[in-house]
Design a protein around this nucleic acid. Structure first.
Lengths: 229, 229
DNA sequence: TTGTATGCGTTATCAC
DNA sequence: GTGATAACGCATACAA
């Protein structure tokens, strides 16, 4: 794999000049630029992102730690995040915590070792030591879908859906339709989203004067049955 | 974020010594090791993987380019790959090609720029220029689930299921049950797996003397309906 | 056993 | 406009 010095040699210029055309710095004569570009082309040269990151102190990489890859919601989320990131010339590295705090920390640690520029996390219930420490230490971080309310975490932005509003709207709709016995199957209770929904459900029933049966509150997983590739 | 020199200073040793205990090199006195470890601990030092990669020329990272993240098969695959890799202290970076050759190449390029140690690819139909070039150039690569038969690619290992055998077994089973009109819904025709299955289906029908209706060969997607997070 | 010095591939600062 | 060269954080060959 050719390095910048190979390109320089072939183009008959210094590595500095090659670097300049690569980062399209203004001060480089048109014809030298051409020569460099030609050398790049026929050497099939590609800048070493590792070296570049070491030097510039940025990796153009985002970490995304999700709680469950097998949940289609998160797989769609991952896809959207990657789409948006790619648009800005960022890569995203996904870590699957599988609802396990220790695994979540493993990924946070690995990603930080790799010096990612920022971290998106849909935290497992209660968070995990390393991830909380990173957040408090000011690591660029955003919570997605789920969140954690704890000291020192108020500066971590949260991107999420309005579960409470959604549940209320659903109950309102069913109520307007004349239904009086409504039930809910929410996600795992060990998630902020799951709890929020059940809680909102109780509130909504109360608000609309519907009777609440405790056994009308169910809990499910968010995973689909398996498929074939 | 502390660097190795900070640890060295704090432990009163040289960076070389710190590096040695970090990579548990044998020749380092027990008590100095302790001192270094202590310094590491209370500085919360973590080796910079970027710098380490540049120096050692290995990233302990695998690239996994799949054709469709929204297909649960690939999401399970990704999960398994990551599990196995983690066991060996490797990370895996996933790229979603979304069945688009250009996107596939984008990911191959990005991953190679990042100097990943190896590439797992479930190629889109017909492959893509950069990915084929990489394979021919000897980039450590293995095909998963799907594959490509082309010149210079015979040294790329393929990990896949025995779709042909599976279809034959299915038809045999149905036939033994006395069924005479069997149909198939295979995956996208633009995949090796999809074509293999339809092909095997035809063969099996012939073998078992069943009549083949062309309109009994359907084609579907492998995506589940959406779910909530 | 430990320290000094070099180099990995870049970018950026300084000369010219 | 272009070229030496230092520095990024680390691992290692060589000296001591």
């Amino acid at each position: 794999m050719p390095a910048i010095k190979d390109v320089a040699r072939r183009a008959g210029v210094s590595v500095a000049t090659v670097s300049r055309v690569l980062n399209d710095h203004p001060s480089v004569r048109a014809d030298t630029r051409e020569r460099v570009l030609a050398a790049v082309a026929d050497l099939g040269y590609r800048p070493n992102a590792v070296a570049r990151s070491l030097r510039t102190d940025q990796t153009r990489t985002l970490g995304l730690v999700i709680s469950d890859v097998l949940n289609p919601f998160f797989t769609e989320l991952a896809r959207s995040v990657e789409d948006a990131a790619r648009e800005l010339d960022y890569s995203v590295v996904i870590g699957n915590a599988d609802e396990r705090p220790d695994l979540q920390d493993h990924h946070v640690r690995t990603l930080m070792d790799r010096r990612i520029d920022g971290l998106l996390v849909s935290p497992t219930d209660g968070g995990s030591p390393m991830m909380l420490a990173a957040a408090r230490a000011g690591t660029p971080m955003v919570f997605v879908d789920r969140w954690i309310e704890d000291e020192g975490l108020d500066r971590v932005p949260v991107i999420r859906t309005d579960g409470r509003g959604a549940i209320r709207a659903l109950v309102a709709h069913l109520c307007a339709l004349g239904h009086r016995r409504v039930a809910i199957i929410a996600g795992p209770a060990a998630t902020t989203t799951g709890r929020e929904r059940v809680d909102a459900f109780r509130s909504a029933l109360r608000e609309f004067g519907l009777e609440l049966h405790e056994d009308h509150i169910g809990q499910g997983t968010s995973r689909p049955p398996a498929a074939a590739g």
